[in-house]
Every structure is written in C-alpha cells, then in structure tokens.
C-alpha cells in the first residue's frame, strides 16, 4: 500500500492547487517571456526594465487566480450547500470547517508558484542583479523651489548609508525667458554635487550619484534658472548604498502577492456563509483582480519595483499588505460568527 502523499487539509489543498495551477502559470510565464524577448518595450537608449512589468504581473496573477479558485472549488465548506460538507464540518477542527487551513494551503501553493517567477522570470525580464532601498522622504511644508526660495530640506532615517539621489519634481511656468532649473544637492551641509542636467519640464528625472555615506538630511538648492519647481511626496528619492539580492526582493514580491489572495479568500469564505459556489467564485475572482492588476494594494507597485531594482520592503508596501491581512482576518472572524449563528 502506498501511503497517501498528504493527509492534512493544508497539504491536500496545496497539492490540488498545484495540480491545477502549475500548467496555466507556466504557460503564461512562457508566453510573457517570449513576448518580452521578441517585442521589448521601446524605451530609448537607456534600459528600463520597469516597462516590462506587465510581463511579470500577468503570470504572477495567473498563479494567484488559479490557486485561489482551485482551492475554493476543492474545499467544500467555502460555499453554502456543497456536496459532502456535513462530513467536513463534523471532522475538521475549528468553527469554519477547515477553511483557514484550506486558505493556508492555497497560499502555500501560490508561494511555490510565484517564487520562481519573482526570482527567475524577473531576472530574465531585465531586473538588475542587486536591489537598493529607495526612500522618498516626506517633503517640507510648502515644497516649492524657485529663485525666491532657494532651498528645501528633507530629513532621512539615520540608520542607512546612501549613494544617490533621484529628483523628479513638478515644473511650473517659467517666470522669465525659459532657462532650466539648475539644482545642487547638499548632504549634512556638504555639497554632494550639482545635478547633471537642468530641469525644464514635469516628469523629467535627474539622478546624482555620490560615494556612499550616511546622511541625516538632504538639502536641494536652486542654483539658477527661471522654472519654479514643486516637490510633492516622491519627487525626491534617495537610494540606499547597501546591495540587496534580487532573489530576496523576489521573495518579498511573492509574499506581497499573498496579501490580496488571503483577503480575497477570506472575504469569499464570508460570502460563502450565505451564498453558493457560483457567487463565491465570482466574489473571489473580482477581489483577486482588484487586489492585483486592479492596482489596489501593494502588488502592482511591487512588481515594478522588483524590475527596477528597488527594494520592495518599504513602509508603504508593508502598510498595504498589513491592511490586506487585517481585512482577511476580520472577514474570517465574521465568517466564523456567521456560521455559529446559522
């Protein structure tokens, strides 16, 4: 007699998800890689791997969709009135008939599928071998820079060393004949350098690299020009000097992708306390769509960050993922209470 490969709910669900989701995910990954190779995005002379983010997002989303739907269809207590659910309710531990364990199985399968994509396919699509922390310090009040107000100061966390500054401000109408704004960057009172190009329009991004050093503060000085500049959040980014492996960054993307899947599964389970399988699957698919390629949450930005070589573990990503987790946990709690009432 061959002993069964999986006995518990987590591993059984995970195995079922892998059985159904592996092929579509591989097919999507292969198709996306081929498209990216044969028809790379036209980005001019400089490499812009961030432009390839749809080709990484699509197979990752395929894995998320396939795993969550396969898991929900596999486990009988996700929806009301499913065949054999009395068996499961009676035998599975906990008030939700094994749904939390099944969700864990779904997430495990999804992690196994998305990890190679986030680490391997991302490199194949041009992600740099190392990633760096990109920190956008909050701008000061009234963040305007012009001939009349010549400098803005940005506070930095003291724990890191930095090696570059990216500036991408909003440009206003010139106050005299058009002369692009020339900026100098100071760190802790010392001149780090002048930006290599004058800024004449919104969207223009200029970078300044400097030897790695700790910084507590960055000051941007308006040297000359006639174009006033505004620095909303994100217009100035400092780049950390520490090299971080893209493999770890890929792992972070795979973890970030778990958050919308968890929230979607938990909300689907909540819907399943009152609705049948078709409604539950519709709710699930809609929520997965919104949470991934729909742009709500951290996933979309994390894909682009991975391909650009930006370290994903920023406070914004962490907060968005924790919000998803909290929504999912609340939904499971509500589902448990609803089942107890029925």
């Amino acid at each position: 007699m061959t002993p069964p490969a999986a006995r518990g709910i987590v591993l059984m669900t995970s195995r079922r998800c892998l059985q159904l989701a592996t092929l579509p995910t591989l097919a999507a990954a292969a198709a996306c890689w081929l498209v990216a190779v044969w028809s790379p995005p036209a980005t001019g002379p400089t490499a812009a791997p961030g432009a390839a983010s749809p080709w990484l997002a699509l197979p990752t989303c395929t894995a998320v969709f396939a795993c969550t739907i396969a898991g929900v269809l596999f486990w009988p207590t996700f929806a009301r009135g499913r065949e054999g659910s009395d068996w499961v309710v009676r035998l599975a531990r906990g008030g939700l008939g094994g749904v939390p364990q099944a969700i864990l199985g779904i997430l495990l399968a999804q992690l196994l599928l998305t990890l190679p994509l986030a680490c391997g396919l991302a490199r194949a699509l041009g992600a740099p071998a190392v990633a760096h922390l990109h920190h956008a310090p909050p701008p000061p009040a009234a963040p305007l820079l012009a001939a009349a107000r010549r400098s803005l100061e940005f506070a930095l966390p003291a724990t890191d060393e930095w090696c570059a500054v990216h500036v991408q401000p909003l440009a206003g109408l010139p106050t005299a004949d058009l002369v692009g704004a020339a900026l100098a960057i100071h760190g802790d009172g010392e001149l780090l350098g002048n930006l290599p190009a004058r800024i004449v329009q919104t969207g223009q991004r200029v970078e300044l690299s400097f030897p790695r050093r700790p910084l507590r503060e960055v000051r941007v000085e308006y040297v000359d020009g006639s174009v006033p500049l505004a620095f909303p959040p994100g217009a100035l980014v400092v780049v950390g000097a520490t090299d971080r492996s893209t493999l770890w960054n890929g792992l972070l993307l795979a973890l970030v992708a778990l958050a919308p899947a968890f929230a979607a599964c938990a909300l689907a389970a909540l819907a399943g306390t009152a609705a049948g399988t078709p409604t539950v699957v519709t709710v699930l698919a809609s929520l997965v769509f919104v949470g991934t390629i729909g742009g709500v949450g951290a996933f979309d930005g994390a894909v682009t960050a991975l391909l650009r070589g930006e370290w994903i573990a920023s406070a914004a990503v962490r907060n968005a993922s924790l919000t998803c987790g909290a929504i999912g946990a609340s939904a499971l709690l509500a589902a448990s209470l609803a089942r107890r009432r029925t």
């Binding site: 002993p3 069964p4 490969a5 009395d86």
Partner: peptide, 26 residues
C-alpha cells in the same frame, strides 16, 4: 460517527487519501 446520505466530499481524492484525511482529523 455520522454517515450523511449524500455523496462524499473531496471527489478528486482516492479512497485511501480520503480515509487518510479522516484518520488525520480523528
């Protein structure tokens, strides 16, 4: 033990896998 009247759940499992799950839950 309760044996409901309808079909069994987890129809993609084999008989041994199904019993292994029941045994694990017990």
């Amino acid at each position: 033990a309760f044996q409901p009247a309808g079909a069994l759940p987890l129809g993609v499992l084999s008989a041994r896998e199904f019993l292994a799950w029941v045994g694990a839950e017990l």
